[in-house]
Nucleic acid binder design. Structure first.
Lengths: 334, 334
DNA sequence: CTGAAAGCGCTTACAG
DNA sequence: CTGAAAGCGCTTACAG
C-alpha cells in the first residue's frame, strides 16, 4: 500500500542541502532572525517539489501537545451542531484539527472516553452542555472551554447564551394571547442549560400571570419521536390541568409535540400553542411553522473556539459580544 | 497547566517492576505466549493505579500509522450525516478515533485539506459522495472507502444505495396520480450520486409515460433557502411547461420547495406534488408531510466502516447485505 | 517469557 | 545564521 518511501524532513533537508533543524524552523514559521531568506526559499522549494507534509504525530510527540481540538457534544445528530461546528472550525482554521467525540444520542461521554481523548494529547477541549457530574471527570489541566453551560459549579471558561430577555418576551407573547396555564416539555439530559431554560420559563410565566405544569412525564431525550411519545403520555393530565400552550426545551422536542398533536387530533395553535428553542432551519417549514427562541449556533462555536485559542496561547481572553437569543414568533402560537 | 509529571510507559514499567517492552505488549494485547499471566496482572494493576493512558501520537509514530479515521463529507450540517456518523463510530468502536473534515457547506475538500490529513497518518479515509475530480487528488495508497458514490471512474471500494426500485416506485406513484410532466430539482455539488438520482428519475419517469423538466435554473446547494430561491426562479418556466410535480435531489431541497410554494401561493399537493430523498426525521412533520425515498444513514455508515476496517487489517471484505432505498409516501403527493 | 536497544519523525536548546 | 544531538513516548525485532 505504501507506494513510495515516505518523504520526511530529512528528505527535504537533503534536497535543499540544509539540516532538518532548518527545515523544521521554516515549516513552523520560526525563521525570525534564525534562517536566511535564501534558505527559506530553498526549503520552500524542496517542500513543494517533494510534496512534503509534516508528520503531526511526530510533531506532537516532540512538542508534548498535538494540534487536535476535541469537541465533546452529547448529540451531534442534532442539526444545531452543524452551525456550531462550522463556527468552531472557521476559527480553528489551519492550525488545529477538529476531532469529534461521538457518543450515543444524548449520552455524556464516560470517563473511559475521556481517557482516550487524553491519549491524543489534545491541544484543547470544547464541551457542549456538560453536566456537573461530567466535569468532575475532567480532572485535567488541558485548555478547556464549555459551550452553553450556564450556572455551573465548576470554575471553567464558558460561552453562554443570554436568554433572559427572549424568554421574557416569549412569556409576554403567550400571555398576550390569553394563555393562563402552560406546560413545559423538558429534556432529560440533565445539563444546566436545560435547567436554566425551564427555571426561567417558569419564572417569566409567573411574572406574566401564567402557571406552568412540568410533570415528570413531560420529559424526553432530544429526539422527535421520543418527545412525541412523552407528550402523548403526559397530555391527558396536562389537558385536565387546563394547559393551552406547551413550551419545549428544544425545537426537536417541539417537532415531536407537533407530531403527537396530529395523532391526538389536537389543533395547533387553536387548541394548543407550541414553542421551541434553537430555531433549526426546519422550524420555518413545519406544520404549522414553529415559534421558537433562536440560539445562533455559529457565533457560539466561534466564540468558544476563540476563547480556547487564547487559553492555548496563554493570551488574555478578549471581550466578546454577548450571544443574545431572540424570539421568533411563527404560526404555532397564533 | 501540566499538574503532574506525565505518566508514561516507563512510569508503569517501574511501578510494575518490568520493562517498558512488556508494558507495551500488555497494552496492545500482544501477550500471546510472550508475557506470563502474573506479569500481565502486574502491568494491569500498575496501569490502573497510575491512570496511565497510551500516548497515541507516540504510538502512531512507532507504528507508522495512527488510529485516526477521517470522514470527509461535503456537508456535515446535513442531518443525514448524524445517522451516518453514528453508524461509523459504532463500528469503529474503541480501536479508532473518528476525525471529521469540516469544509464549507457543499464544498469538496481541497488538495490542501488532503495534505493536512496526510500529515495525520490516518489509519483510513471515508469519503462521502466525492466527485471524480476530488478523487484525482487522493493519490495515496491509504485505506479508503467511498460512501454513496455510484458509477465512479475510480476503482475504489464503495458502499452504495440500491435506489433503482424505489425510484421506479416513486415514478409509478406519481404517474398513478395523473402527473404527466414533472420537474427535477437537482443538487449542484456535481457528485455522482446526484447524477444517478437525476438520470434514474428521468428514465423511470419516461417508462411511466411522464416527461421531466430539469432546467439549469432548477439546481441549488443542499440548503433550504438556496433551494427555495432556485425553485422560485425556475417556477414560471416550469409552470408554463405544465409541471405538476417536483422531485428533489434531497429532502432539504424539498423543504425549500415547500417554503417557496408558500410564498408563491402554490398549494401542495393540490397544485404541486413534492418529493425528496433521505427521509430526514423532519420530513414527517413538514407542512405537508413529505413523500421521500428513504436512505438509511446508519447502515451506510456501518457498512463503510466495516469495509474500511477490512482494508486496514488486510482481511477479505465481507459480503454485506445491500442497502436498499425505499419509498415513503406521505401527504405531499396525495 | 523477558529486556536492552534501535528507530519512528519531529522540535528545541545548545554550541558554533 | 546553521547544524549536530538529545529527547519526546512509544513498538518491534532481536538476543537471551
Amino acid at each position: 500500500m505504501q507506494r513510495t518511501p515516505r518523504v520526511t524532513a530529512a528528505t527535504v533537508a537533503e534536497r535543499a542541502g540544509l539540516s532538518i533543524a532548518t527545515v523544521s524552523l521554516v515549516l513552523n514559521n520560526k525563521t525570525q532572525g534564525r534562517v536566511s531568506e535564501a534558505n527559506i526559499a530553498r526549503v520552500q522549494a524542496a517542500v513543494d517539489e517533494l510534496g512534503y507534509v509534516i508528520d503531526r504525530g511526530a510533531s506532537a510527540l516532540a512538542r508534548g501537545r498535538s494540534d487536535l481540538v476535541i469537541l465533546v457534544a452529547p448529540d451531534l445528530s442534532n442539526p444545531f451542531f452543524g452551525a456550531v461546528i462550522r463556527g468552531i472550525s472557521a476559527e480553528l482554521g489551519d492550525r488545529f484539527q477538529l476531532v469529534l467525540s461521538v457518543t450515543e444520542s444524548g449520552v455524556q461521554p464516560t470517563a473511559a472516553d475521556l481517557r482516550r481523548f487524553a491519549g491524543l494529547r489534545p491541544a484543547g477541549l470544547l464541551v457542549d452542555a456538560p453536566s456537573d457530574a461530567f466535569l468532575d471527570e475532567v480532572v485535567d489541566g488541558d485548555p478547556l472551554v464549555l459551550l452553553d453551560a450556564p450556572e455551573l459549579a465548576h470554575p471553567v471558561a464558558t460561552v453562554n447564551y443570554d436568554m433572559a430577555d427572549a424568554i421574557d418576551e416569549l412569556a409576554a407573547h403567550l400571555a398576550s394571547r390569553g394563555h393562563t396555564t402552560i406546560a413545559y416539555l423538558d429534556s432529560v439530559t440533565g445539563t444546566t442549560t436545560f435547567d436554566l431554560r425551564r427555571d426561567r420559563v417558569i419564572a417569566a410565566a409567573a411574572e406574566h400571570g401564567m402557571s406552568v405544569e412540568a410533570p415528570d412525564a413531560a420529559r424526553s431525550v432530544i429526539d422527535m419521536h421520543a418527545a412525541a411519545y412523552a407528550f402523548t403520555q403526559a397530555w391527558p393530565a396536562l389537558r385536565d390541568a387546563g394547559v393551552t400552550a406547551v413550551v419545549c426545551a428544544t425545537d426537536t422536542h417541539a417537532y415531536g409535540v407537533l407530531e403527537a398533536a396530529r395523532g391526538l387530533a389536537i389543533r395547533v395553535p387553536q387548541d394548543l400553542a407550541v414553542t421551541g428553542f434553537d430555531d433549526l432551519p426546519y422550524s420555518a417549514v413545519t406544520s404549522p411553522s414553529l415559534t421558537t427562541i433562536r440560539l445562533p449556533g455559529e457565533p457560539l462555536g466561534r466564540a468558544a473556539a476563540r476563547r480556547l485559542i487564547h487559553q492555548i496561547d496563554d493570551t488574555p481572553a478578549e471581550d466578546l459580544p454577548p450571544l443574545v437569543a431572540t424570539l421568533v414568533a411563527r404560526d404555532s402560537t397564533r
